[in-house]
Amino acid sequence: MRFLVSLVAVLVLMGAAYFGSASSGGQYLFGVIIPYAAIALFIAGVLYRVLGWAKSPVPFRISTTCGQQRSLPWIKNSTLDNPHGTLGVLGRMALEVLFFRSLFRNTKAQIHGRPAFRFVYGADKYLWLGALAFHWSFLLIFIRHYRFFAEPVPGAVLGLQSLDGIMQVWVPSVLITNVLIIGALVYLWGRRLVNPQVRYISLAADHFPLLLLLSVAGTGAYMRYFSKVDLIGIKQLAMGLVSFAPVVPDGLAPLFFTHLFLVCVLFAYFPVSKLMHMGGIFFSPTRNLANNNRAARHINPWNYPVKVHTYEEYEDEFRDVMKAADMPVEKE
């Protein structure tokens, strides 16, 4: 049901762009107005969300420690999993952001041999592998697209592209990232349908972005390998957009506008969705703080006085019994 809603939404979006871009007015709408609007929404939205997080203070240093603390000099501190200082935190964050270290720990709980039961927690790296394949492919594809927005195309981008196509199959040669991203997305979506636990927790807001990304990658790949769209015209449009002098050349394929529109939807949807985890991870207090609470005091900006029970109040209530028990008191 929740995946059906998402599937229908993505198909409707594709149809709208495919048929909507048929007229010249439609082409201007899908080629210029919507891209600008989407980018504006993306930038404003991301800023709004990130500033919103930044506005809330971090009252306590609550790092989740995943290794040995720094205490006695002869006990080895686990710098990356239980960082004591800034350098360790940077290392920990880099491992999280670039290699999804926490997800790498993933295990799968299984019950063996009922009724003489035994739990086994085997390593389960598939989610980690799928997530890593998707995110890295997406990043590289994103960078590769820079060739549409610059003339001459920077050597690094060209180098990346030829490295990506190193397999030399098909004409034009198949890019590894294309295969990986589609494979990873199919896996990530597939587990939301097949794994009973993950299906149970998945919302429409989980199916939709996966299907949207799949449609972006699918239309992109289709254009590259099968329909062979007018790359010169597309570059003309892209250069016009980035130089704020947009022109829509004639003869651009509806499939291209579909691809572009899906990307625009992705951009516009990004700030109001869970995709903001991209920014959020940098703000996660359990990961981005050192576990040095006992060495350096953390300040809570809204720390306020609370009602406490003072020693004087305590002694006032218990003075007689304390004296009777020969315990020292402040006031006789």
Partner: peptide, 21 residues
């Protein structure tokens, strides 16, 4: 407004299911 942890944790879960079991 007082806890960034709370605000961020409300926003960024992707329901990947790694925590489930």
């Amino acid at each position: 407004e007082k806890y960034r942890s709370f605000k961020v944790f409300m926003d960024i879960c992707v329901r990947c299911g790694a925590c489930a079991d």
